[in-house]
Simulated assay, not measured.
Amino acid sequence: MTRRDELAANLAEVRARIEAACQAANRSPAEVELLAVTKTFPASDVALLSDLGLSAFAENRDQEASGKTVEFAEARPDARPLWHMVGNIQRNKARSVTSWADRVDTVDSIRLADALAKAAAHRGRPLDVLIQASIDGDSARGGCPLPELAALADHVAGSGELRLVGVMAVAPREMNPARAFSVLADEVYRLRRDHPAATVVSAGMSGDLEDAIAHGSTCVRVGTALLGGRRLASP
């Protein structure tokens, strides 16, 4: 089996899971975006996934992503993918991240938001961002504590260089995913009262995407189920 065949089979299986989860939740599969998490995988895999119809890819390290996006552009010059940053960002890397990322999904503090806003000034257009919510409040894993979510959302929305498009979260390992995503759904409901344009809910990964979709996720981040075990990225 070629790598393309392997990816095609995995993609078909993931899409079937998304469709089944949407059917169970009485939702349309068109409401849920599949974001391919390509961290640690080479640009050649991204090119194959692009050939198979995917157009949104996620990276978690600036150094890896900045090179990979260039490699991909050279391999598929006519493609126009959207690149997402889904990792923690050091503020001194903000300008580099804004040079390749179409959306940053891990804004968890006012200081990071301000650094990204300053760095995004050179883009000529606002940078789309998601606020990363910490469902359990454990700062060691990143994310904005839920009681501080509204203030951070207001701050981001007030920036002319950033555009608040929604919320991202990871279910804590020690918490039942369905319970975690139920808590997130309540927070999203409250947030949208003040920011109705923040419609994206990025929640659910390879192991818990069904629970996330059942609780309103509009974007599932899939790596292992799509690409397999971790590999070394291209140089």
Rank of each mutant, 00 (worst) to 15 (best):
S234C: 04
E6A: 13
G204V: 07
E161H: 08
N92Y: 02
P235N: 11
E59R: 08
G216F: 05
T38W: 03
R15I: 04
L162K: 03
E148C: 00
A150R: 13
M205E: 13
R103S: 10
F181V: 03
S134A: 11
M168R: 01
A150H: 15
L34Q: 04
D51T: 04
D5W: 01
A171M: 12
H122Q: 13
A43Q: 05
R17P: 10
K93V: 14
V156R: 03
N60R: 08
P196L: 09
A16K: 15
R61K: 09
P29A: 10
D108F: 06
T106K: 09
V70Q: 12
G223L: 15
D108R: 06
V167N: 09
S202N: 07
L52F: 00
A9L: 12
A153K: 11
R231L: 07
R173W: 08
V32N: 05
P126Y: 13
H122E: 00
L11E: 06
R179D: 15
G137I: 09
R95N: 08
A8P: 00
E74V: 11
G124R: 08
K39T: 15
Y189N: 04
A101M: 14
L7W: 10
A157I: 06
I131R: 05
A157Y: 03
V107G: 06
A21Y: 09
A150Q: 14
F181Q: 07
A56L: 12
I18M: 15
G143H: 10
L116A: 13
S206P: 05
C144S: 09
Q132Y: 14
S159I: 00
D78L: 11
D5L: 07
R231F: 11
A233G: 15
H155K: 01
M175I: 10
F41A: 12
T69P: 02
G228A: 12
L34S: 07
T199S: 12
D208F: 01
